[in-house]
């Protein structure tokens, strides 16, 4: 497997560890962690730090009007429920794959069993397809499928765009990206993503502003970017 070259920043990992991060970004990072032992190790360090703060150093809350004894009893009463049905309450049976372009792709664990939150595939110009993913976030999350030999026109970003490669590979002016790569773009960057002949690509993207196309006819796409990438 190709070595992962692009990772979330330390700041992102720390905020993720603390649980204090935008829900959309949390999904992106969780999916990256599945690919990346390097970031998993970093995350464990941060978690240790926060766990110590929360569970070792901190004094327990005075319960206020919350009755924890009742809660304890309710939970223990769960033992009478066959374990299987409780399991199924906790984890709905997960659909692990998604189909696009007549192919099955394995979803990141965090999106497995969440198919109802993944919108229908719609076509973009240039042999690209997109499915909206609902996430607890003010940002827009999408699955983007680029068929072989496809291209998006050059564009900049009005905000940040994060692209996580799930399968296959794509390239832009700065390089080629492989599964697990967590590519962060901001308004400084201009790029035109494309795939090579015989190589398609499935990505998960998070946008906090619509794409802004910069060149020629492609600027015609600007009103479309509102549609496609929201």
């Amino acid at each position: 497997m190709t070595k992962i070259a692009c990772h979330p920043s330390d700041e992102m990992l720390a905020s993720y560890a603390a649980g204090e991060i935008d829900g959309g970004l949390a999904v992106m990072i969780s999916a990256h962690l599945e690919f990346c032992p390097h970031c998993r190790a970093k995350l464990a360090k941060y978690e240790e730090q926060y766990a110590t703060q929360a569970f070792v150093s901190a004094a327990p809350d005075n319960h206020g009007d919350v009755n924890l004894d009742d809660m304890l009893e309710q939970i223990m009463a769960n033992d009478s429920i066959p374990e299987k049905s409780v399991e199924s309450l906790l984890n709905a049976p997960a659909d692990t794959h998604i189909e696009v372009a007549s192919q099955q792709f394995t979803l990141p664990q965090i999106l497995q069993g969440q198919q109802q939150k993944i919108g229908p595939w719609s076509r973009l110009p240039g042999k690209i397809q997109r499915a909206k993913v609902s996430s607890a976030s003010s940002s827009k999350m999408n699955l983007i499928y680029m068929d072989e030999s496809s291209a998006l026109p050059e564009h900049t970003h009005q905000g940040n765009e994060i692209t996580l490669v799930l399968a296959g590979s794509f390239s832009d002016e700065a390089g080629t990206y492989h599964p697990g790569d967590f590519v962060i773009q901001d308004s400084q960057h201009r790029h035109s993503p494309r795939t090579e002949a015989g190589k398609d690509c499935l990505c998960l993207t998070l946008l906090d502003a619509p794409l802004h196309f910069t060149s020629g006819f492609a600027s015609l796409l600007n009103p479309f970017s509102q549609l496609f990438f929201r």
Binding site: G126, K127, P153, A218
Partner: peptide, 24 residues
Amino acid sequence: PILSEDRDINDNAPEDREIISQQL
């Protein structure tokens, strides 16, 4: 939302490209 305001197209590059152009 973008249609409710006038857009500036100052950065029109002369070369139209991409498969997209034809489709559009």
